[in-house]
């Protein structure tokens, strides 16, 4: 008999009715706080053409605490580590309860367009990105082709 806060119901409705271009977020059948997310790799980025699966979970005290988001699809990106954890300030200390699932996913999409090797989570990737960006981008494209385009 777990009643879902109005805030989550409204956000879910809006995600369904006016989906963000390039992003789909669908709540799990058994857990309305768990979302299956697919982000399309942005145009003109090494991730173009890829479909990246993520999981998003709204903790009990959402929106006071940030949603927990993780990439499931492997991705070669300086701000995303091997476990799919994302280095994004709004998911951590810059979280504000006025932000929404929608804004979080948009920020993640933007992070794919503009990797930030100066604030890395995956150090080896970041290192290569700084030293040899061309090769890093090649790797990212290769990973995208290999892991994010299987269908």
């Amino acid at each position: 008999m777990c009643s879902l806060p109005r805030r989550i119901i409204k956000e879910t409705q809006r995600l369904m009715q006016e989906p963000v271009p390039g992003i789909s977020a669908v709540p799990d059948d058994n857990n309305a706080r768990y979302f299956h997310v697919i982000v399309t790799g942005p145009e003109d980025s090494p991730f173009e053409g890829g479909l990246f699966k993520l999981e998003l979970f709204l903790p009990e005290d959402y929106p006071m605490s940030a949603p927990k988001v993780r990439f499931i699809t492997k991705i070669y990106h300086p701000n995303i580590d091997r476990l799919g954890r994302i280095c994004l300030d709004i998911l951590k200390d810059k979280w504000s309860p006025a932000l929404q699932i929608r804004t979080v996913l948009l920020s993640i999409q933007a992070l794919l367009s503009a990797p930030n090797p100066d604030d890395p989570l995956a150090n080896d990737v970041a290192e290569l990105w700084k030293v040899n960006e061309a090769e890093a981008i090649r790797n990212a494209k290769e990973w995208t082709r290999r892991y994010a385009m299987d269908n």
């Binding site: 005290d61 006071m64 504000s96 309860p97 006025a98 932000l99």
Partner: peptide
């Protein structure tokens, strides 16, 4: 809602 923000030591959610 404002009480909760204060409990979480959040700044103002809309303007920080």
């Amino acid at each position: 809602c404002l009480d909760r923000c204060i409990d979480y030591n959040h700044p103002c959610p809309l303007c920080m």
